[in-house]
């Protein structure tokens, strides 16, 4: 029992369960089957959290190496803009082949932006927060240039499927996120890659001396983060069937960092938790939905969210827990005094 309580993911999980329980009461259908697929609040949450899970997943890897990527939101905007622009030029927007090609191309471009970030950090040696700030600011401008400041509408069935479609009764967007998580878990926990990441985050110099290609690994994680951000941008724009270069991914880097921190990954690098990040991302999405479902007034939503996040952070602080819950437990320290 105490080992469960001590697990750092216990409190985030507990808060998630509470929020979901609230939604069970506020929603007409929490989870049900309609038109041959799952439907309900829980499905909306899972589907809606897919972009954040993807972005936070990339962010986890970057943070594990001791870096940070502020440019993810701008990369989302760029990839959505590129995809919608190309699709709107298609003769037949419902042709699956070309749409898939465009999706692949948009992700490819996003990976290249990640390569740019990684090169600035690992090869040029710029602080990650500054290196990615360049693309964060400039990238949104690039996205606006691509769309000419307009919202580009597309009417492509296959494209909309990646956000609103269902496969085997489950939302496609969520399946994409699950596949990405599975891939990363496999790569980091079943191969030595995870260990290498943690060692680079712990000490790049020591890793290099131990024969680990620290630079190569650093460049790689930024490329992965860029690719996932691009994929998230596609889901975002497919969801509204249009490219909105101003609001796509706006401030998502902060939500992603919050998800990573809630998940228990330290911002200084080193140890990381994929499961924690996914939990954090779903928690943030659930919080957003709950605020609307319980009818918190628009003026108070940010305060409401802040209270939940503060409570969450306090619950994860060992010092705070010691102060509040410390007295309830038997004190080994007291026994030590007696022994003296």
């Amino acid at each position: 029992m105490t080992s469960i309580l001590k697990n750092r993911l216990f409190w985030p999980a507990a808060i998630l369960v509470v929020l979901l329980a609230v939604n069970v009461f506020t929603s007409n259908q929490f989870i049900t089957i309609r038109d041959g697929h799952l439907f309900g609040t829980l499905i909306d949450i899972l589907r809606g959290s897919a972009p954040l899970i993807l972005v936070a997943l990339g962010m986890t890897l970057v943070i594990a190496t001791g870096g940070i990527d502020l440019s993810v939101g701008s990369v989302m905007a760029i990839s959505g803009a590129v995809a919608c622009l190309l699709i709107s030029d298609l003769g037949d927007q419902n042709a699956v082949g070309p749409v898939l090609l465009i999706i692949a191309a948009s992700i490819g471009i996003s990976v290249l932006f990640g390569l740019w970030n990684g090169a600035l950090v690992a090869i040029v040696g710029i602080q990650p927060i500054i290196a990615t700030l360049i693309l964060m600011v400039a990238g949104r401008g690039v996205a606006q240039l691509i769309t000419d400041g307009q919202i580009i509408n597309v009417q492509s069935g296959p494209y909309a499927t990646i956000a609103s479609g269902f496969l085997l009764a489950v939302p496609v967007a969520f399946l994409i996120a699950v596949a990405a998580v599975a891939l990363i878990v496999l790569l980091t926990r079943r191969t030595a890659l995870g260990l290498l990441l943690e060692s680079v985050g712990g000490s790049p110099t020591a890793s290099r001396l131990a024969g680990i290609g620290a630079k190569r690994i650093t460049v790689m994680v930024y490329m992965v983060a860029g690719g996932f951000a691009g994929l998230a941008g596609l889901i975002y724009s497919a969801n509204i069937k249009s490219a909105d270069s101003i609001s796509a991914g706006n401030l998502i880097e902060l939500d992603a960092i919050l998800a990573v921190v809630i998940g228990g990954t330290a911002l200084i690098g080193g140890r990381f938790s994929i499961a924690g990040t996914v939990l954090g991302a779903i928690l943030i999405q659930t919080l957003g939905v709950t605020v609307v479902a319980v009818g918190v007034p628009a003026q108070a939503t940010l305060l409401f969210k802040a209270i939940v996040v503060v409570a969450l952070c306090l619950s994860q602080s060992p010092a705070f827990r010691e102060k509040v819950f410390g007295r309830l437990k038997p004190r080994p320290a007291l026994r030590a005094e007696v022994a003296q």
Binding site: N28, D44, I151, I240, D244, S247, G288, V289, V292
Partner: peptide, 18 residues
């Protein structure tokens, strides 16, 4: 927030909770 994506997300929840 005057945005298309937010309009969609909030409406989804409205539909589920009302």
């Amino acid at each position: 927030d005057f945005k298309r994506a937010d309009g969609k997300t909030v409406m989804e929840t409205f539909l589920q909770s009302t």
